[in-house]
Design a protein around this nucleic acid. Sequence first.
RNA 1: GGAGAGGUGCCGGAGCGGUCGAACGGGGCGGUCUCGAAAACCGUUGUACUCUCGCGAGUACCGAGGGUUCGAAUCCCUCCCUCUCCGCCA
Length: 429
Amino acid sequence: MLDIRCLRQELDATEAALARRGYTLDRARFEQLEARRKELQVRTQELQAERNTRSKGIGQAKARGEDIEPLKAEVGRLGEELKQCETDLHVVQAELDALLMQIPNLPQADVPDGLDESANVEVRREGVPREFEFTPRDHIDLGLPGGWLDFEAAVRVAGARFVVMRGAMARLHRALTQFMLDLHIERHGYQETYVPYLANPESLEGTGQLPKFDEDLFSVNCDQRFRLIPTAEVPLTNLVREQILEAESLPLKMVAHTPCFRSEAGSYGRDVRGLIRQHQFEKVELVQIVRPEASPAALEELLGHAEAVLQALELPYRVMLLSAGDMGFSAARTYDLEVWLPGQDAYREISSCSSFEAFQARRMQARFRPKAGERPELVHTINGSGVAVGRALVALLENHQQADGSIRIPAQLQPYLGGTSVLEPPSEQ
RNA sequence: GGAGAGGUGCCGGAGCGGUCGAACGGGGCGGUCUCGAAAACCGUUGUACUCUCGCGAGUACCGAGGGUUCGAAUCCCUCCCUCUCCGCCA
């Protein structure tokens, strides 16, 4: 949520910044609501003040044993206008809040112009895509032997956009998860955190999935309030909702491994084959809760932590700075990590690292106290995937495949696979 | 799911419908004392919002939302949550 003062005091600049990301502010509506709010609030507070003093007077008169009936009649008339004003004010306030909740975050000044991914800027490349002495296969082919990756079985169990993994592939998937968790816990200083996979609407509003993007989420039948989390960002970030943190406790650095559930409404026909876009996938998520002045550096740091995963897995990637229009609703600045996929002959997103500044904190009322006795201030929130496990699996298969269909395991991952250096495909029967 | 108890400020914990933003205790902050510290003592200490250039003034908030009343933390209704016991369950 934007600070309403952006709209009150710097309407032109705010409108322009929102336009950069393709959002058209309904300026007339805001100005009309705001004017009405002001009028009603001033009047309501006047009336309340008067009622308070008069009621107090009645109390004192009664204590002196005077006749209070005439006084009561007088205040009674005042009460009717007050009630009307309060009701109207509530309505206007609610409309104003609803409007505010629909407005996305402002992009940082140096975020590139542009309305979609074509305007994203490549920051740098790491690693060099390998030259294959044979025609590389994609992960779907590589996953065929022994039902390593079985999409048809998943259709029977659930439906499209799910997968069943077997044997070494399932273990590799688990190994990747464990490796990433350990890396962030032991080398990057994150606290391992276990969180609920269902979230209530308040939490989803806090991070920005609701009220606008409910169709992207799965709801639960038995309790209409719950949604399946689309990312661990939701539970992790909301751990500080409505909290006032001590300054010394910052930064908070948390990592969690969770499944993520996304309806993928509106992505029909995109990535229909394979593991790239699933209704259910695993992700290791990094979240930092920081003081405002620390947030730019913290985003760069967190980006480095995500990159460390790809480097350890010996995967070539590039870092993209997203254009204003390609960022998510709540983000002020986003870097995507795109990993090289030989099967697609393209770089594909495997991590997204964003700073939300105070946008989520304001929705969550997540604050910290700079010094004992001082007023609380909103924290900044930052998160990033470190990294998407399913896509990491794809990248590993496709980049480290060998001519015979076996998969080379990078040295740092080997301890998680009992020291195995090559995954041999099961022999076909 | 059944039965019961309860939701008050940073924490504990009071609160006949009227000077209650809330006693009291703890904690925090500032000070006195001290070489320093502890103890003791004194003072202070919520959040959000509105109007105002500013000084300042005002409003709201005692789980949430309604209602009764001139006036509600206190009375009534609805909802939410937490805890205890039973049942069920990994």
